[in-house]
Design a protein around this nucleic acid. Structure first.
Lengths: 141, 141
DNA sequence: ATTAACGTTAACGTCAACGTTAACTTCGGA
DNA sequence: TCCGAAGTTAACGTTGACGTTAACGTTAAT
């Protein structure tokens, strides 16, 4: 069965139920279908998507507002659904697509530069380690 | 003159005066000497150190509490001063040094794994870009 | 010597990102 | 069928990381 309740999702994604509802409220996470009694019914797709959100937030250090930006361009799911529906003219669609392309390029560039700066910090720390080891060496002599 | 007031520091580091005092209050940033009238007098060393703090926070996405941890092992300045002074026995010093070494190793490992995960996101985004370009291509045909 | 610009502390305000609680409904097993 | 676990919304509380304001002292330049 491809049906999950909020607690299952929470467990698997490492979030609280409150947080999941909060993300839905903010528009970071899509609102799922409801059961007869109004209970949120999630699918596996939802879970995978939420996992992506969590890692993006963790690794990139994005705020929830930035996440909205990020998600609007980074996800193929949205590429097939949101950008394709609810838009009127072909011209509008095309401009929306090229805009997405541009945003995507910016995201990629930003992540790349972050990686570079992290590499710098990494090698600085390696240097510090060497100096520390030297210091300890001299210390025990 | 190697003397700066808080506003100079703020400008150069891209922070507000309030933030600098707040960092001092938290122990993230060392308290400088004061002038006769109680005004904070900083040196170039302070500025460089604060710049490090800012980048570490930005790039690593550390909270201020985590920064305290990070700074206590990552900085050579502290290696020469804090760990060397205010400690009593030689045994204590040695254990403190090996503890620093261990923490440093952990930091290095953590940053490395962050870099790896960012690389993954980066290549995922590259894939998305390719798919998006394809989509646009077919769209304009 | 005065004044404007800049410094100080202390206290309160704010915003994001949830946690907690209350008051209620729904669901699954004995 | 009934009870307890787990679902729901709504509202208030909390914490981190500062911003803002007030009330005041210091400094530099005219």
């Amino acid at each position: 069965m491809d049906e999950y309740k909020i607690d299952d999702v929470a467990r698997e994604c490492g979030l609280t139920k409150r947080t999941i509802r909060y993300y839905e409220e903010l528009g970071v996470f899509p609102a799922p279908d409801r059961s007869e009694g109004g209970i949120r019914i999630y699918t596996r797709e939802h879970i995978d998507y939420l996992k992506k959100i969590v890692t993006a937030k963790e690794i990139l250090g994005f705020s929830l507002q930035e996440l909205v930006q990020y998600l609007s361009v980074s996800d193929a799911y949205k590429m097939n659904h949101q950008a394709y529906h609810d838009v009127k003219s072909r011209e509008e669609q095309k401009s929306k697509l090229t805009h997405m392309e541009q945003m995507l390029d910016e995201q990629i560039e930003m992540i790349y530069s972050k990686i570079e700066r992290m590499k710098n910090m990494h090698s600085e720390l390696e240097n510090t380690r060497v100096r520390l080891k030297d210091f300890i060496q001299k210390f025990v002599e």
